[in-house]
């Protein structure tokens, strides 16, 4: 059942949340009515039936979307979502961090394999963003691990629920929230795709089901990232009985994603160097959080 809950949350709620953000946040800010909430699903299904245009006959392009999709799902199965994660006993935070990375690897490999200058540029940007954003997640999780004395994500959440809040955990939560925007690929950090300048970057040559799989994987990834922040650093509601604990978790995730949506709408895109300078700052904040954890605060 836990498998179903986690997969269902990311696969179904993910696109739906995107629809909510479009309808409730973006359309409202733009002063327009906006598409229906389930529009992302319409898009996905439409794409799945569309012609698959191949400009490069590369095995990598063939499989990368599936790998991205599957790795996000595995990451989801490793993440506790209001309750113990279904695969939690087989993988700790480092396994999680690496699996969520595979999706980025798939994107980069796709971009490289397409060999279009746009996709290459997008791939390069994806790598660079990843290099500065991923450390924030890792450092925040290590902070929690130091406090909890264990690298298993459920242990961290449980520790924070029982012993929190601590200065270090709060600081880590702030840092992680600052990184969330980039992790889910929203403005001002959607630099790798940047539809208006490099035409979707790594995805420029993709169409039909491949694009659909990537998009779905990214809808799911939003929920995964938000869940990590929610379950470990905002642990309230962890001991509710099922299904209230999942409900509480879902609520936190929705709030986070809507917040992200708001920021997305009101900000212009940064240049890649500006973004990196920004994240060096965020990494510093995270390191401070870790230092606090090490001195026991």
């Amino acid at each position: 059942m836990t498998f179903a809950i986690n997969l269902g949350l990311v696969l179904l709620i993910g696109p739906l949340l995107a629809g909510v953000v479009r309808k409730v946040v973006r359309a409202r800010v733009h002063s327009r009515k906006g598409p229906p909430i389930v529009q992302p699903f319409y898009d996905l299904f439409k794409l799945l039936g569309k012609e698959d245009l191949q400009s490069v006959a590369s095995q990598v392009v063939q499989y990368a979307p599936l790998v991205a999709f599957a790795s996000v799902l595995v990451a989801a199965l490793l993440t506790p979502m209001g309750m113990r994660a279904p695969l939690g006993q087989y993988g700790d935070m480092i396994v999680f961090a690496y699996f969520i990375t595979i999706a980025a690897v798939a994107v980069v490999m796709t971009g490289l394999a397409c060999s279009s200058p746009y996709s290459m540029m997008g791939a390069g940007r994806e790598v660079m963003m990843h290099l500065v954003v991923e450390p924030v997640l890792i450092i925040c999780l290590i902070t929690a691990a130091i406090k909890a004395g264990s690298l298993l994500m459920w242990d961290m959440a449980a520790w924070n629920y029982v012993n929190g809040p601590a200065i270090s955990m709060v600081a880590a939560a702030v840092a992680l929230f600052l990184a969330l925007q980039a992790q889910v690929g929203k403005l001002p950090f959607d630099i790798p795709e940047a539809d208006q300048e490099i035409m979707g970057g790594p995805f420029i040559e993709l169409s039909g089901p491949k694009l659909a799989m990537f998009q779905w994987a990214f809808f799911a990834r939003q929920v995964v990232y938000a869940s990590v922040l929610a379950v470990i650093f905002i642990p309230w509601g962890l001991t509710f009985a099922f299904p209230w604990n999942v409900g509480a978790h879902l609520l936190k995730v929705i709030v986070l994603i809507v917040l992200v949506g708001v920021i997305d709408v009101v900000n212009p895109r940064l240049r890649i160097d500006q973004a990196m300078s920004y994240f060096f700052g965020v990494i510093f904040v995270a390191l401070v959080a870790m230092a606090f954890a090490l001195i026991g605060a």
Binding site: G49, E51, D52, S55, S116, P209
Partner: peptide
Amino acid sequence: SRMGAAQTREVPM
């Protein structure tokens, strides 16, 4: 991904 039974077609970059 095979749900829509999409066709493939070779195109230039």
